[in-house]
């Protein structure tokens, strides 16, 4: 059970039970559908920009605890952040999920709760789906992202 508690930390279980920023933003500037075809998980990300700032962000969809908590923690962390900072957070989260590198940087704040996912290769896509949708929203290249 100890290893599992490293994956399913209390923060993750809490954000899964009560996801923050869950719902639509009617006047969003960007709406991105994210899909994980391997498991059928789907999420839609809504982003409202104010110049170079993420003024508001929300999500809807169905997914596992890792996927829901990652989406919830992400929206909580980036709301009000600049687009540049958000893109740099994307890189930090990506590194944390995929490489055995050093301790996650302090800037990640609560997002470090996702660090345990690294030990579960089959679950990395669950955690990264929301972040790929976010990158697509901010770079404006696609309307739909897939983990495959």
């Amino acid at each position: 059970m100890n290893e599992l508690q490293e994956l399913y930390r209390e923060v993750i279980l809490d954000h899964n039970r009560q996801p923050r920023n869950f719902g639509e933003i009617g006047d969003a500037d960007r709406v991105i559908d994210g899909v994980n075809p391997l498991c059928g998980d789907r999420m839609t990300l809504y982003v409202k920009l104010n110049g170079a700032t993420v003024q508001d962000v929300s999500f809807r969809g169905t997914g596992c605890a890792i996927s829901v908590a990652s989406s919830s923690l992400m929206t909580e962390r980036i709301k009000g952040a600049s687009v540049d900072e958000t893109m740099s957070l994307f890189e930090m989260v990506h590194d944390m999920l995929t490489s055995d590198a050093n301790e996650p940087p302090d800037e990640l704040e609560k997002l470090v709760a996702l660090a345990g996912v690294r030990e579960y290769p089959s679950r990395v896509k669950c955690a990264s789906l929301a972040w790929h949708a976010l990158r697509a929203a901010l770079t404006g290249t696609e309307h739909e992202v897939s983990t495959e």
Binding site: M1, E3, L7, R17, C64, A65, R123
Partner: peptide
């Protein structure tokens, strides 16, 4: 109820 199948799969795998 309240537990996604993938979480069930990971937990029983342990």
């Amino acid at each position: 109820d309240g537990i996604h199948a993938h979480d069930v799969g990971t937990i029983v795998d342990a």
